[in-house]
């Protein structure tokens, strides 16, 4: 590996504390079929599944690293890149779409300077378009982590961002 490439890899993958993964793995180590709970556990703990953690899980569970990657890419629930502290999800299902969801999405893109499934460099926000959140009566709908915002407007986008900019990162 050339120095530049090595440096780049370093930047992409910050040092991770494997003792956190150890705790999760220790909990499930004797359980048959433990790969899914372990991967879910480490994702909960780190917010995503860092490559080093995936490799470490492979070593400890004696599962091929490739197989772990196969599982991680098969399920939408796993994330391989760091995720924001606040996950903004805007519904683009039929009901929301007809009540103006595309404009809500565009506004978030403009304000946060990120696109779908992307994360702001300060790791505060991750934005996702989702198919349906199951509350069509409140269309157009947005969610920030577990908070729900119904009858969204372009103005409310500013308010939401202003509010969550004040929230602590931890």
């Amino acid at each position: 590996m050339s120095e530049a490439v090595a440096q780049q890899a370093e930047e992409q993958e910050p040092e991770v504390d494997l003792s956190i993964a150890d705790k999760v793995i220790d909990k499930y180590i004797d359980l048959p079929g433990n790969l899914m709970p372990v991967l879910q556990g480490v994702q909960d703990a780190y917010g995503y599944v860092p490559r080093k953690v995936a490799d470490y899980v492979a070593e400890r569970l004696n599962v091929y690293p490739s197989q772990i990657y196969g599982v991680l890419t098969f399920y939408a629930q796993f994330h391989l890149k760091p995720r924001g502290r606040f996950i903004i999800r805007v519904c683009v299902g039929t009901a929301c779409h007809v009540s103006g969801a595309p404009r809500i999405v565009e506004t978030f893109f403009d304000k946060l300077h990120i696109g779908h499934a992307e994360t702001t460099p300060d790791l505060r926000y991750t934005f996702e378009k989702v198919a349906c959140l199951g509350a069509c009566g409140m269309a157009p709908l947005a969610m920030v982590n577990d908070d729900t915002f119904g009858k969204m407007t372009v103005q409310k986008v500013d308010e939401i961002i202003a509010e969550y900019n004040q929230r602590p990162m931890k």
Partner: peptide, 20 residues
């Protein structure tokens, strides 16, 4: 028993590849 290759992703995006 090396497991270098696996199915990655799903649906039309499925391909055979190595980890990451």
């Amino acid at each position: 028993s090396f497991g270098a290759l696996t199915f990655i992703s799903r649906g039309i995006e499925t391909k055979i590849g190595c980890e990451f």
